[in-house]
Design a protein around this nucleic acid. Structure first.
Lengths: 383, 383
DNA sequence: ACGGCACACTAATACGTTTTAGTTGGGTGG
DNA sequence: CCACCCAACTAAAACGTATTAGTGTGCCGT
């Protein structure tokens, strides 16, 4: 029996509840009076067709809203027009972290200009994450991958390189990596913060750090160690999981210790804001008796009073940069290289001041902007 | 020439830089001593194989990290294990809005339990969005779609229904829709806010609304109109695009008008926080002379001082609910139905109080939560 | 002892493209 | 006038799996 010649190729299905028959390239070919090969050539912009024929084919296809079936196309080794992004943090906390949303927006925005979509998946742990990479590679599901939160001794780059999937790592640096990497100079960035605090006169500084196994956390910690000699600053670091809960807890711990630090640096905006809340609650005036700096900037650091001094970087742009690099890796398969994103700049706001300046009898006076509406204190994003 | 019998099926490629040959079901079949059909039966859990054979096949596949090529599988009409989500808001603002991040987290988290990924795409306008739906449908790229931000005369549901793609709409209600929809009773929710304000004694209330063409915005506006008769409240509404900039602008406008409203309701948490900033800047005490309520709750409403009274809902759960429903629609293709998500509950915090109550000489006294540090207590003090 | 039948499995074909290897038909140079 | 070539197109062979229609077995009841 000849294959499905009984299909209605162009039924008038207006108003019919029955599903319309799927069009195939043969249908287009027939209507355009050419062969299927010609249709393929037209759609892939390959030479071997007269301009008139090509246009006729495309027009017929356009009229019928026909497009090559992507599975059939992928079967021949074509691109998937999709890149994968697997996230291993707990899903609940994901929405809280502005970094992800911004990064994802930038990433997807750049990819969209090439018609590439993002495959997003949330998993429990690194074990599951690696299983997903295996699966996707075996299934040929994505054209490329983005790796987040590179750890110290991370086995994922090796796995992915072995699977021969194009990928870009965010945050990798140091040991030669088998994959292209985009990284940020956290050391210099952290040093900027400490330099600011040292200039103000702070000598004992607290640090509420993120997950210590992440490479970028390590770079920040290294900067703290180096500052001891360079800037004469002593730093007490507390590790957390980036949650506001742990950020608050760590703050409470730092503020009850003696001698008490006069400034605290937070590895994320969420924790910084939570820390500010704790300080307020404990009636520790900010910035009168405690200066607060956030390593990450977002709406969360700009909204509280006082607004929080923070390192600002264009996370959205970091996403587009990563996307551009990934598209390049997919297209050209170049040798791995390491790319540096711009180092975050310090934006001084109301939460930092010289240490030990007591407020008036109203313990919160320092937090309240004076009657005048001096815009510099409120929102100006420059030192 | 026989097809690719020259391929090395099981080369020892350890350490070889050359890409390993892709395994196919024939390779697994040969190693397991069965036919390709048997491999297929094993992988699709179909009857017709002895348990021993099935296990042997699966084990061989496992050892080689082989999995059916998804394109070939999709060619036979199988699922894509991916649903599509097209977003039409400007990419830059996306990261700012916690709603999206939470919703997406919940959605993807639920989908992940079924191994389904999300295809994310950001586009410029509705025109482009509909083109994407057309393309994805023609290409057979996704198993289902999620529609956001349903507008008043929205043509998208009709299009998607015509394309025969399973889909779930978020926010649709009223006119019979051709697709399953998950909606929230914004009318009742808004009425809860207004009731709270009316009880406190407010009579003139400002409203900083979101995009007016959205259906959920319409429902909220209707509640405002109804409140005029029911609660004796007069409401002045200002339309914005959900950005903090426009939220601040609208607030400034409302606060300089005479007579000045004694409370402002914001359609989003970002705008509410921005509004609080403006009020502080203009030295309008909150909640002394101005009460502030946010329609959406997030970390942004909880962090400022005073923390902002808000309608709280589990956006994450809204995402999982939508995902569950979509998976159901994909699997069963039931007739369209309308599903109601839980109505948001009002959480009274420090930003609302009876109108016209001046504070002490320290204008922020009312804003500071008491010594206790229990966040639950901060939000549980309902009227 | 034999038809029948369930079971375990296989051969062959279909899915809808892309690609390779042709096949025309007309023009061109010698 | 012929050999040759090029442009324009087509026929047929992949791509890797799922499925349908079988093919042998061994077992059962009568």
């Amino acid at each position: 029996m000849p294959p499905n010649d009984d299909r209605v190729p162009l039924g008038d299905f207006a108003g019919l509840p029955a599903a319309p028959a799927r069009l195939r390239s043969t249908d287009i070919a027939r209507l355009a009076g050419v062969s299927v090969s010609a249709v393929s050539l037209a759609f892939n912009a390959r030479p071997g067709l007269s301009e008139t024929t090509r246009r006729r084919i495309l027009q017929v296809a356009e009229e019928l809203n026909w497009r090559p079936h992507r599975a059939a196309r992928a079967l021949k080794g074509a691109n998937n027009d999709a890149v994968g992004l697997v996230i291993t943090r707990p899903a609940r906390t994901l929405g809280v972290e502005p970094f992800f949303a911004h990064f994802l927006s930038g990433l997807q925005s750049r990819l969209s200009t090439d018609g590439v979509a993002t495959q997003l998946l949330i998993v429990e742990d690194v074990q599951a994450e690696m299983a997903v990479y295996r699966r996707w590679a075996a299934e040929n599901r994505v054209d490329g991958l983005v790796l987040l939160d590179l750890e110290v001794d991370d086995r994922r780059p090796e796995l992915i390189a072995g699977l021969r999937v194009p990928a870009v790592i965010l945050g990798g640096h140091g040991a030669p990596l088998p994959l292209t990497s985009v990284w940020v100079d956290d050391h210099t960035a952290m040093t900027r913060i400490l330099h600011h605090l040292a200039t103000l006169g702070h000598r004992l500084v607290g640090h509420v750090s993120g997950i210590p196994s992440y490479q970028h956390t390590r770079r920040r910690l290294q900067a703290l160690t180096d500052a001891r000699d360079t800037l004469g600053i002593e730093v007490v670091s507390v590790a957390t999981d980036y949650s506001d809960t742990q950020g608050a807890l760590a703050t409470r711990g730092l503020l009850t210790a003696t001698p008490r630090c006069t400034a605290i640096v937070y590895d994320s905006d969420v924790m910084a804001a939570a820390g500010l809340g704790v300080a307020t609650e404990m009636t520790v005036p900010v910035p009168g008796e405690l200066s607060i700096v956030s390593f990450d900037d977002s709406i969360i650091t700009r909204l509280p009073h006082p607004p929080i001094t923070a390192l600002t970087r264009d996370t959205y742009a970091l996403g587009t940069l990563t996307a551009t690099e990934l598209l390049h890796v997919i297209a050209e398969r170049p040798a791995p290289r390491t790319l540096q994103a711009p180092t975050p700049e310090l934006v001084v706001r109301g939460s930092t001041a010289p240490p030990g300046v007591r407020g008036t009898e109203c313990p919160l006076a320092g937090m309240i902007p004076p009657k005048n509406t001096d815009p510099d204190q409120m929102s100006a994003d420059s030192p």
